[in-house]
Design a protein around this nucleic acid. Structure first.
Lengths: 269, 269
DNA sequence: CAGTGGTCTAGACCACACT
DNA sequence: GTGTGGTCTAGACCACTGC
């Protein structure tokens, strides 16, 4: 609750040396930014430090304005951006809440695969099967993707998602071992709800954005068997790197999607 | 230049019947919206009526504020949304400009296929070959996609895009015949630059957003030949519906992408 | 009712581009 | 310098939620 005397900088010339470079935006910012950007950075810090937990309300705009000694409008603009980036959710009359992968209307926020008829809601929840979950050492390639060093401990998970009994998605995913210490196949199987929600509640890791690289491929024999398709079946290969705050990569996921009953949906603008 | 006495409605109770429903947002709006949304609608009308052409500057915020009899902040918020939807582009110190597919830093705004190494800029422009361009009648399926009636005249184009001599994209696209009267294979071949830019300058049709449906497929023999791949090669099938203002569909495009040297890139947030 | 986010205003000043 | 968009403020009022 204590309010630190947050150092805010005016746009005047001969600015003082930027204190502690506490910005959550990385250390290479040009040591100059509008006030609302600085406020945004401070709020971001509180989000990532866990001062407010996913699903909880953050202080009201008036409170934050008082805390940072700026006008409500400036706080508002900062929150506007955080809201546009899906880091917080505004609810009129109630407050502003830390975004969460749990209790969200959309079950899987990052999964763009949809049934050809109906929508993701109309089909029941996915039937999940953990095929494998083991610890190993990061290869050079994996280390690069997750910003680790080769040989660092990582967790590898393989699972299948089926809809109406039809295996549709085969996923291999890799997580850095340290933040996810204690994650087991059993924990994954027992948990009902999005995997990213489990990451939030059990390991304090919030996935904030992701990049996907999509290709058309054929499965190998093992993959074909797990998805119950011939090895000649064309499948969607979706490689995802998911990031937490600060653009830190925290997951590499390789998905194989059957697209005979589902399709990948993307909106361009 | 003439300023119509645009009717704006207060949020007071017992609002008058909404005059002429001139809103560009469709006729089913709940007859109530904040001022800046009404302003946005009016600006949208001017955009779609061609009062300001792609690439041109729209009036300054102060001018628009005077024209609509509101404060600059209200106009600003309206333009903020239009900017977020990529309908206009703000340039500090210069003005606000109607977005265009021409003279844009990114050659193809809606094409998410990228070379595996380097970026879209580093590889030269695509080598384009028009395979076919003919007029025909809309099938039921096509009519549905383009909001036409079965049998309405449509234009069908088939072309191949190659990079460094490697045919990579095979596209079939269908356009409503009426707005695109006069479009020929020659016009398409002669034009250098994005196809959507030609649509803007020659036919006054601005593509504003699009939806894509992605699958993994195998090509038929003809497609395989054009892309110089075996019929067993897995390819990305990208079906796109592109919309102009008012959510009017104006193009159906079916692309087959080779993903052995390129990949489809998507950012999630 | 009080508290929250949402809208709107009016005015001041800053940063940038052009001339 | 002038004109543009960009930032920041202070205050008023509206709309929604929940006590």
């Amino acid at each position: 609750m204590a309010t630190l005397p947050s150092p805010l900088f005016t746009n005047a010339s001969s600015a003082p040396s930027m204190g502690a470079d506490a910005s959550g935006m990385g250390g290479l910012t040009p040591a100059f930014s509008p006030l609302y950007q600085q406020i945004k950075g401070l709020i971001l810090q509180s989000l990532q430090s866990g001062e407010w937990k996913p699903g909880e309300a953050i202080p009201s705009e008036m409170d934050l304005a008082a805390r940072f000694r700026v006008s409500q409008g400036t706080v508002r603009k900062a929150i506007d951006e955080l809201s546009a980036e899906n880091l917080v959710v505004r609810r009129q009359g109630k407050g502003t809440f830390v975004a969460t992968h749990a209790e969200q209307q959309v079950q899987y926020r990052f999964l763009k695969l949809q049934p050809d008829s109906g929508n993701a809601q109309s089909e029941g929840p996915a039937e999940r099967t953990i095929i494998d979950c083991k610890r190993l050492r990061a290869s050079a390639e994996l280390a690069r993707a997750l910003s680790l060093r080769s040989g660092d401990p990582v967790l590898q998970v393989r699972r299948v998602l089926a809809f109406s009994g039809v295996p549709t998605i085969l996923e291999d995913l890799w997580l850095p071992g340290t933040p996810f210490k204690g994650l087991t196949a059993e924990r994954l199987s027992d948990y009902h709800g999005p995997m990213y929600a489990l990451f939030e509640t059990e390991f304090g890791v919030r996935m904030v954005r992701a990049d996907e690289t999509i290709r058309a491929v054929n499965p190998d024999t093992e993959q074909a068997e797990l998805l119950n398709v011939p090895v000649t079946a064309p499948l969607l290969s979706v490689e995802r790197v998911a990031y937490t705050y600060n653009d830190t990569p925290m997951e590499l996921r390789r998905g194989l999607y059957r697209t005979d009953t589902h399709h990948y949906r993307n909106a361009l603008s």
